[in-house]
Design a protein around this nucleic acid. Structure first.
Length: 667
DNA sequence: CGTCTCCAGGTTTTT
DNA sequence: CCTGGAGACG
């Protein structure tokens, strides 16, 4: 397909797309066609004969990566198997898989998520002699992450914590595991310590693009700088920086200006997404922030509906009202359900909305929330697979050693830990030692239990590593440990819960099946699968999303747009979030940016809901509207009026809808 | 020594 | 309201 770039793009966009040699900084306001620029830019490079394998496009979320890859494929009409579009973390995994041996890990390393990490920190704290009450695991986790990403040092920190930290680092290595920070930090270390490796990657990825640059951390910036020669393009918007709590630092935009003084700079300010009503509101909200790169968005879509405010009595009412309005607008404006987005600040708010949608028979899709992979039953099975893949993984081993119950309880684990400590080996090795050496003091019964547990793991390691049909083998494993029996037993008074959990396990297995049968999947091994799912938080199964209302956090909504957007729970304490404000004063501005991101997701209509009361920990609390609401010029807003009476035609349409719903699947 | 039951405390956003 | 941890029971 031959693209007419000049036709398809405005002058600034064209500038950005065609400047493929040399450093380029694109400041792209919300809705200014940033994704379009990136995809066209990739297409332009390919057209100029640059091989796909030398292009590296990095984004922040899996969703964004997936979407970008898809769009480039659509625009070029090619499959592009060797084009690298991935998140920073996935890219780190890719490098580590090949290079981590240089730092003393083995390639079958485990990736620890936050739960695993906190568990390990807890163990290390206990080891170091902390009492569980005096030790705040969450705080330690954040501190450790800050230290690892070089945002903090040990100055002024209780030195007990530093000890725990070193213990933690040592334990990770001993277990052949890494945490999320390591996925970026270790590649950086490798590139610094092995210049020849760095050169190899530099030669390979000669054209680099980074999306959502305002969300990169210092560490990620380092990785980029080690990798990039001259052809590096970063795209960002300081006004949409909403990940500073995770180390994102929009100062990186300034760093970039310093490090690549010869750069070209393009600002995209024309907004094609929203009405001027919505843009004016957004502009005047963000104007309250200091220290920004000034750029007011301009839109050719004059006018537009006013921003409507709702004031439901409580969160239940809120859900019902939103559900009702969605149905009304859908009919009036002839929209599909997937053209609606309902945004919230925190995941726990999804619950009421989901219930309301269920009650109103509105199809919806939740992005985020308690992730599929965070569910206990799923984590259990995955822990088995991790231990099978990486026997030294003590955290996951402890997790499953007695799930389902097999007689290896607290005391036995303590004994085994003693053995491991005295020999300086992993728990798994300790188990093997106990099996092989009858002179180690150990209760006979438990020794037998340990032996059969080891036998199970070894048998399945053989199966899972050396043969095909991963899904079949995993099902066999689930059967072998009688996980179903365990679920029934563990949920004695709740058949439904047991069934539900088992269905989740089934769907996990089905997911493996689809994944390994995908013809584009070049490496359907257990390791590859584990690496992949470690980076997925959402349940990203390829479902048919069309025709479903989108329910998600504002963070998850970044980069997306909807014709009609609801911002629910727009109350003081929720946005800005009380906890964020406790942390520091810069956080008000970040919360404001978050609100700005939410507002700018809307194309046509924006509705904001403020509850009068909300239940918090089972206690109803009176709500105060978010202070950000006052930053919207009054003339742009109005209270929501009920839709006018439906015409006869429309009534007929409603009935048809209802009938369809009870017939087969409604659209 | 393993398992069951009760109780207290608490959760922002994501890789 | 749900989780995780500590104490009682068998």
């Amino acid at each position: 397909m031959q693209l007419d770039y000049e036709q398809e793009l405005n002058p600034e966009q064209y500038d950005a797309v065609t400047a493929i040699e040399g450093p380029l900084l694109i400041i792209a306001g919300a809705g200014s066609g940033k994704t379009r620029v990136i995809t066209f830019r990739a297409a332009y490079m390919l057209q100029k004969g640059i091989p796909q394998s030398s292009i590296l496009a990095l984004t922040f979320t899996n969703k964004a990566a997936k979407e970008m890859a898809e769009r480039v494929r659509t625009v070029t009409g090619k499959k592009l198997p060797n084009l690298t579009v991935s998140t920073f973390h996935a890219f780190g995994v890719k490098i580590l898989r090949k290079e981590i041996h240089r730092l003393g890990w083995r390639e079958n390393y485990s990736i620890y998520d936050e739960v695993d990490r906190n568990q390990l920190i807890k163990d290390c704290a206990r080891e170091t002699g902390f009492k569980l009450e005096t030790f705040d695991v969450n705080k330690a986790g954040m501190l450790f992450s800050d230290v690892k990403t070089e945002r903090k040092n040990w100055e002024g920190v209780d030195d007990g914590y530093e000890k725990v930290f070193h213990e933690y680092q040592a334990a990770l290595k001993a277990y052949n595991a890494v945490d999320f920070d390591d996925l970026i930090g270790l590649p950086v270390r490798i590139f610094q310590a092995f210049p020849e490796v760095r050169e190899e990657y530099r030669d390979h990825y000669r054209y680099i693009m980074i999306d959502e640059f305002q969300d990169t951390s210092l560490q990620q910036y380092q990785l980029m700088r080690l990798l990039a020669r001259d052809n590096v393009c970063v795209v960002g918007d300081d006004d949409q920086s909403i990940y500073s709590w995770r180390g994102a630092n929009y100062q990186n935009i300034i760093n970039f200006e310093k490090d690549w003084p010869r750069r070209k700079e393009v600002t995209l300010y024309r907004n094609y997404r929203s009405t001027t009503t919505i843009l004016d509101a957004a502009n005047s909200i963000i104007a309250n922030n200091t220290n920004r790169k000034l750029k007011d968005l301009r839109s050719p879509n004059e006018g537009g509906a006013q921003i409507e405010l709702l004031s439901p009595a409580n969160e239940l009412d809120e859900g019902e009202q939103i559900a009702t309005i969605i149905r009304e607008i859908k009919l009036k404006d002839k929209l599909r359900y997937d053209q609606f987005g309902v945004l919230i600040r925190t995941n726990n708010l999804t619950r009421y909305l989901e219930e309301a949608f269920l009650g109103a028979n509105i199809p919806y899709k939740v992005t985020g929330g308690t992730s599929f992979f965070g569910r206990k039953e799923i984590k259990d099975i995955i822990s088995y697979l991790r231990v099978i893949a990486n026997p030294e993984d003590d955290v996951n081993l402890i997790r499953i050693v007695n799930v389902p119950r097999r007689g290896i309880g607290r005391r036995s684990v303590e004994l085994l830990t003693d053995v491991a400590k005295s020999r300086g080996c992993s728990l798994r090795a300790a188990m093997e030692a106990v099996r092989g050496d009858p002179f180690i003091e150990f209760p006979d019964r438990t020794r037998q239990d340990v032996e059969s547990f080891l036998g199970l793991l070894e048998m399945f390691r053989e199966e899972l590593l050396h043969r095909r049909n991963l899904a079949v083998k995993v099902r066999k494993l689930v059967d072998a440990i009688d996980y179903w029996g365990y679920l029934v037993n563990d949920n004695q008074h709740n058949d439904k819960a047991a069934k539900w959990k088992f269905l989740n396990v089934e769907s996990l297995i089905k997911g493996i099946d689809t994944w390994e049968k995908d013809p584009d999947n070049l490496d359907p091994s257990l390791f590859a699968w584990l690496n992949r799912i470690s980076l997925i938080t959402r349940d990203d199964q390829e479902e048919d999303d069309t025709g479903k209302v989108n329910l998600m956090t504002i963070h998850a909504a970044k980069g997306l747009e909807f014709d009609v957007v609801f911002i629910a729970g727009c109350e003081d304490g929720i946005i800005p979030h009380a906890r964020a404000l406790e942390e520091g004063d810069g956080n008000v501005e970040e919360e404001r940016r978050l609100f700005y991101v939410a507002v700018t997701r809307a194309r046509q209509r924006l509705l904001i809901s403020v509850c009068q009361q909300r239940r918090r920990n089972a206690m109803p609390v009176n709500c105060v509207p978010s202070p950000f609401l006052a930053e919207i010029p009054e003339h742009l807003t109005c209270w929501r009026e009920p839709e006018s009476e439906l015409s006869e035609d429309e009534q007929a349409a409603v009935w048809q809808d209802v009938r369809k719903m009870f017939g087969k699947d409604a659209e």
